[in-house]
Structure formats: structure tokens, C-alpha cells
Simulated scan of single mutants.
Amino acid sequence: MKWYKKLMAGVLAATLITAVVPSATTQAASLSGRIVINGSSALLPLTLQAANEFKKANPRVRISASAAGSVTGPQAVRKGIADIGACDWDASTNVPGFAKFDGQVANKVAVIPFAAVVNKSTGVDNLSTKQLQDIFSGKVTNWKSVGGKDADIIVVNRSFGSGTRVNFQLKALEGKDFMSKGSNYKEVKSSGDMKTAVETTPNAIGYIDLAYVTDKMTAVKVNNVAPSEANVINGSYKVWSYGYYMTKGAPTGATKAFIDYVQSKKFQNGSLRKLKFIPISAMK
């Protein structure tokens, strides 16, 4: 009978532990709410992938995401119409052209490599900083001047408020101004629009983050350095930024759980990397 009493005592203890400590499945099932995300189109592929994965584990959480440019993210958070503002700069601090958004917290979620991209027709795969400055300012107007074929250059730019534009101007053009009009100038609103414009417009040049680069365009080297993960990490390629999820104060509830998932090793070293972003832990 002693062995029976010991067995029953063990069963009772296990029952009590199970009752007191909920399983991970139970915790996930209990998480509920709605998360609205707005802002950076550069970060949109990452956001959509993370949302799909997070919702599978947390079916009672609804997530909606849209992208109209980085500045619209913290603006939407300030107005109370978004829980997360995706932004290609830390919007809690002042940056050239944009004042800080007081009361917002910058949650770092990714490293974003950006690249100058050209239509396959140009015959160009490497440009110097000076050549990029001359092309995007309108000083150089023919591909022949920079080693390509004899054809007019079509410059495609992002509209004001784009985080990709902010970073490309600061880091690829070293702060030099863009041209803003002309028969060889186009302006687009999102990374998706930039991708389509460069792919389909002969002799076009633009810029985009690596998540959108396809085999229908060429991501050019800058000063003979390719826009690759390895070159960003080793410091030889400079055109990159951190991506942030801006929140009104410290995130809580489902919003915090979602951001924690995006920052987790599982996502950072898995889906994030497959989408051509770089884990934040990779940068020293």
C-alpha cells in the first residue's frame, strides 16, 4: 500500500502543477486584440510575414498592415489610429527634415540594406558616389557618361516622407539634393511602386531595399562594393539603416507580444533573413 500512496501523491502533485501553470498553447490562445500597423513600405514584407506567423500561433489576435511611407507610421501612432508605426529611422529623435515624435518609443526590429537599382537595359552594374550624386541631381543625363549605353537616364525617386529616400540621400548621396522635375524624372509613393517602375522602364535608375530586388533589375555596386549582407556587417557597404516599430510609450499586451516575436531569434534568424533583411544582433 505504501507504493500506492506514493503513486497517488505524485499524480495529485502533477495535477496541481498542471492546473497552476498554463501551457504555452493556453497562453497563446488567451492572447487577443487588434494590432494596426502603418508606415514604411520597406518594412512591409517583414511585417506581413511576421503577422502571418504570429496569427497562426495567436488566432484571436487580428493584425492589419498598410504602408504609405515611413513618416506616416509615427504620424498614425500620434493620431491614435495605429498601434505600431513602421519607420526606417528612429522617429523619437530629430533627423534631417523631420522633427522627433515626442512620447514615442523606438523598438528596433531589423537592419535594412538599401541599393541603387537599374533597369537591365542600362548596361551598368557599378557606380561611384560621385556618379550617383550627378545622376540623381540631374547633372549627368546619359548612361554613356558613366560607362553604360548611349541612352537618356530616367531617374525614379520616392516621394517626400519615405524612409528609403531619407536613408539613400544621407548615405548613398552623402546628403546631396535630388532633382525634382523634368521629362526624365518620375516620382513614386512606395517601394512596390519603385520596384515596378525600375523593372518596366527602360534606362531607369532608382533605389530600394533588398527585399524588393528581383532578377529583372540590377542592384549596382557602390564604389565597387556590392549591397550584400556580408558587406553591411563588415562595414564596407554603408547604405543601410535600422528599421523600427514606433509605439506610443512602451508597448503592452498583444502589441508587445508581436514586437517580441519579430525581435525573437526564431524570426530574426529565419524568415527575416530569408526576406533579405539582416538580424539586429548581427551588427556590432
Results as ranks from 00 to 15, higher is better:
N58D: 11
N58T: 08
P59S: 12
R60N: 15
R60V: 01
V61G: 10
V61L: 12
R62P: 00
R62A: 15
R62Y: 06
I63S: 12
I63V: 13
I63W: 03
S64R: 12
S64F: 06
A65G: 10
A65T: 05
A65V: 08
A65L: 07
S66N: 14
A67F: 04
A67Y: 04
A68G: 04
G69P: 12
G69F: 03
G69K: 05
G69H: 05
G69M: 09
V71M: 10
T72K: 14
T72S: 15
T72H: 11
T72I: 12
T72F: 13
T72M: 15
T72W: 10
G73S: 11
G73Y: 01
G73E: 03
G73M: 08
G73C: 10
G73W: 01
P74V: 05
P74N: 07
P74Q: 06
Q75R: 12
Q75N: 10
Q75A: 14
A76N: 08
A76Y: 01
A76D: 10
A76M: 07
A76W: 00
V77L: 09
V77K: 06
R78K: 15
K79L: 15
K79V: 05
K79H: 11
I81T: 14
I81M: 11
I81C: 08
I81A: 07
I81S: 14
I81P: 07
A82D: 02
A82P: 05
A82F: 02
A82Y: 00
D83Q: 13
D83T: 06
D83Y: 07
D83L: 09
I84H: 04
I84E: 02
G85P: 06
G85T: 02
A86T: 13
C87T: 04
C87L: 03
D88F: 02
D88P: 02
D88T: 04
W89V: 00
D90S: 01
D90L: 00
A91V: 00
A91P: 01
A91F: 00
A91Q: 00
A91M: 01
S92T: 09
S92W: 01
S92M: 10
S92R: 05
S92Y: 02
S92H: 05
T93G: 08
N94D: 15
N94T: 11
N94S: 13
V95L: 09
P96K: 12
P96N: 11
P96M: 05
P96C: 04
P96E: 04
G97F: 00
G97Y: 00
G97P: 04
F98P: 02
F98K: 07
A99E: 15
A99D: 15
A99R: 13
A99V: 11
A99M: 13
K100Q: 15
K100Y: 08
K100C: 09
K100D: 07
K100S: 15
K100I: 01
F101T: 02
D102L: 14
D102S: 15
D102H: 12
G103V: 09
G103F: 09
G103L: 13
G103W: 05
G103T: 08
Q104Y: 02
Q104W: 01
Q104M: 14
Q104P: 11
V105I: 14
V105Q: 11
A106D: 06
A106K: 09
A106G: 11
